Amino acid sequence: MKVLIIEDEAGALDDMSSILAEVAPDIEVAGTTESIMQTVSWLERNPAPDLIFMDIHLSDGSAFEIFKHTSVESPVIFTTAYDEYAIHAFKVNAIDYLLKPICVEEMKHALVKFRKLNRQPAVPDLNRLYEMFAQQRTNSHKNILIAYRNQLLPIPTERISFFYSTKETSKVYLADGKSYPYNKTLDSICDDMNPLSFCRVNKQYVIAKQHIQNIVVWSNSRLLITMDVETPEPVFLSKNRAAEFKKWVTG
């Protein structure tokens, strides 16, 4: 059985690959993708896999956007850090969902469910998915709360230039040059922010569209992005995500 894994976090991809190897050694990982357009390209150039594991929140937006760009003929098991309430909107239309961090027993259960369905197509109800995605955008935060010393500072999102994360910490940088520790992962930050205004460009940065100052084509067709506030290190975007990023910037 061949599967496609759509996952933009290297650690999560490694965990899933290890779990699959342990619980279902007959499964072959036919491919891995990490963005919307990379996935669309893979699906259009390769035979449909028997099963797709699809992370909902990718670095360049919602995985639901994949269904807008190409036909998905394979059954889908979603992987997500979303709360239960969001999953109810679509779980009946997919094989199953796995909440991160994924455990061995849940993976076993999902694969048993898949095999029992005798490989009948289980493509999600797109109208319901788009409705949920639109609701997510509507509910995006207009302010964030920053814990600073003995205060909670409400910061309007339009003042945010970018979020920066390392293995040790995450910080938010404002357009006025101030920065504060912000104890959230980039995945969680992306869930909170409006995807029309904020984009995760790599494993370290979530940037605000309105605070982009310059974009330069760099070596190997990567993009070098300059913000209106000095960044701790250069902001690079990979070649395979350049086209989708340009659509986001001009959208």
Rank of each mutant, 00 (worst) to 15 (best):
Q120F: 10
A147R: 15
T33N: 05
I27C: 10
S197C: 12
S71E: 12
F236T: 09
Y182K: 12
V40L: 01
D192W: 06
T226I: 00
E22F: 07
A208G: 06
L51V: 10
Y85W: 03
F114S: 03
M193C: 00
I207Y: 01
T231V: 08
R159D: 10
K91G: 00
T33Q: 06
D55A: 12
S35Y: 02
P234M: 00
P47H: 08
D228G: 00
A94K: 09
S74E: 00
Y82E: 08
M132Y: 11
R128L: 15
K184G: 00
E73V: 07
I77T: 10
N194G: 01
P232C: 05
L98Q: 04
I52S: 04
K113Q: 09
T231E: 03
K113R: 14
Y82T: 10
I77K: 13
Y148R: 07
N240C: 05
M132S: 03
E230W: 01
D191I: 06
S17F: 01
T169V: 11
N143Q: 14
G251K: 05
K2C: 06
L174Q: 07
E44S: 12
S71G: 00
S71Q: 12
E9M: 05
T70R: 03
V40D: 01
C199R: 05
S238R: 12
Q120N: 12
Y205N: 02
A243G: 05
D125E: 03
V112P: 10
K142E: 08
E84S: 13
P154A: 09
V229H: 03
H211A: 00
A94Q: 08
A24E: 14
A86V: 13
S71V: 15
K108N: 13
N46L: 06
M1W: 11
E84Q: 12
M227Y: 09
D125L: 02
E158C: 04
I225G: 00
K171Y: 09
N194I: 07
V229R: 02
I212G: 00
F64R: 06
A94I: 14
T32A: 11
A86T: 15
T166M: 08
V172F: 01
A12F: 08
N150I: 13
K68V: 04
W42P: 06
K167G: 10
G177T: 11
N202R: 03
K68T: 11
R200A: 02
L117E: 08
F133S: 12
P47A: 07
D83Y: 05
F133L: 07
Y164V: 09
K100I: 08
K239V: 05
A86C: 07
N127L: 10
W248P: 05
P49K: 10
Q213F: 01
D187H: 06
T70S: 04
M227K: 01
L43R: 03
R119T: 11
V3M: 04
K113H: 13
N93T: 15
V206N: 00
Q204G: 13
L117N: 14
R137H: 03
A110T: 11
D191A: 12
A21C: 10
R222K: 15
R159C: 04
V76R: 02
T39Y: 03
P232T: 11
T226F: 06
W218L: 04
R45V: 12
L223F: 10
L145C: 11
L20G: 07
K116A: 14
F67G: 11
F245R: 02
Q213N: 06
M107V: 15
N143L: 07
L237K: 04
V112A: 13
E105S: 08
A30E: 06
L51H: 09
D187R: 09
R137C: 09
